[in-house]
Amino acid sequence: MPNEQFLARQEDRRSGLRALRAALLKAHKELITLNRAEYERLYGPVPAGLFVQIVTEEPYFRWLDPLSRLIIEIDEELEAPEHHDQTCRAVAAATEKLFGPQSEPAFRERYQQALQDESGVIVAHGQLMKVIGQLKQLA
C-alpha cells in the first residue's frame, strides 16, 4: 500500500501537470483567437462550426500543431495512474523547448510575432513560464 508521502507527491505532480495543461490551453486559445482574426481579415468571416474544421485542416494553422500535440501528450499522461519525476521533467523540458529559441522555426517565428501583437498572448506566456518553473521544482 502506498504511503502518504508517495500519494502526496503523486497529487502534487498531477496538479502540476493540470496547471501546465491549463496554461497551454490558455496560450492555445489566445493564439487561435489572434490567428482567427488574421485569417478572417484575409479570407472573410468564418462561421463558428466551420472554424474548427479550418483550424484542423487549413495550412494557415499548421504552425500550432506542436502546441496541440503537447497538450495531447499531457492529457495522455494525466490518464496514467502514476506520475514520475522523469515524466514531469520531460514535459516541462518539452514545453520550454517549444516556447524557447530552439523550437521549430515555423512555430517560433509565428509565436514571437504573436507575442508582439497581442497582450493576451503575453499574459498567457507569463503564466506558462511560471507553471513550467513550478513543475520543474516538483520533479
Rank of each mutant, 00 (worst) to 15 (best):
P2Y: 09
Q5I: 09
Q5V: 14
F6G: 01
L7V: 10
A8Q: 10
A8Y: 12
R9T: 03
R13G: 05
R14T: 00
S15N: 05
L17D: 01
R18T: 11
R18I: 06
A19I: 06
L20K: 00
A23L: 05
L25E: 15
K26R: 15
H28Y: 15
E30D: 15
E30K: 11
L31C: 11
A37Q: 14
E38S: 13
Y39C: 09
L42R: 15
L42A: 15
L42V: 11
L42F: 11
P45A: 15
P47E: 14
G49N: 11
L50V: 06
L50F: 12
F51Q: 09
F51E: 11
Q53A: 07
V55K: 06
T56H: 14
T56L: 14
Y60A: 14
F61A: 11
R62S: 15
L64E: 06
L67C: 03
R69H: 10
R69G: 07
L70T: 01
I71L: 02
I71W: 00
I72Y: 05
E73M: 04
I74H: 01
I74K: 00
D75V: 01
E79C: 01
A80S: 14
P81I: 06
E82T: 03
E82I: 00
E82Q: 04
H83R: 07
H83M: 08
Q86H: 01
Q86T: 00
T87F: 00
T87M: 08
T87V: 10
C88S: 05
C88T: 01
C88W: 00
C88R: 00
A90N: 05
V91I: 13
V91E: 00
A92E: 03
A93F: 05
T95E: 02
T95Q: 00
T95H: 02
K97Y: 03
Q102F: 10
Q102N: 11
S103A: 15
S103D: 04
E104A: 13
A106V: 13
F107E: 07
F107K: 02
R108K: 07
E109P: 02
R110N: 12
R110L: 14
R110I: 08
Q113H: 14
L115V: 09
G120H: 11
V123W: 12
H125C: 08
Q127D: 13
L128C: 09
G133I: 04
G133F: 09
G133N: 10
G133W: 04
Q134T: 13
L135D: 04
L135P: 02
K136C: 05
L138I: 14
L138F: 04
A139S: 13
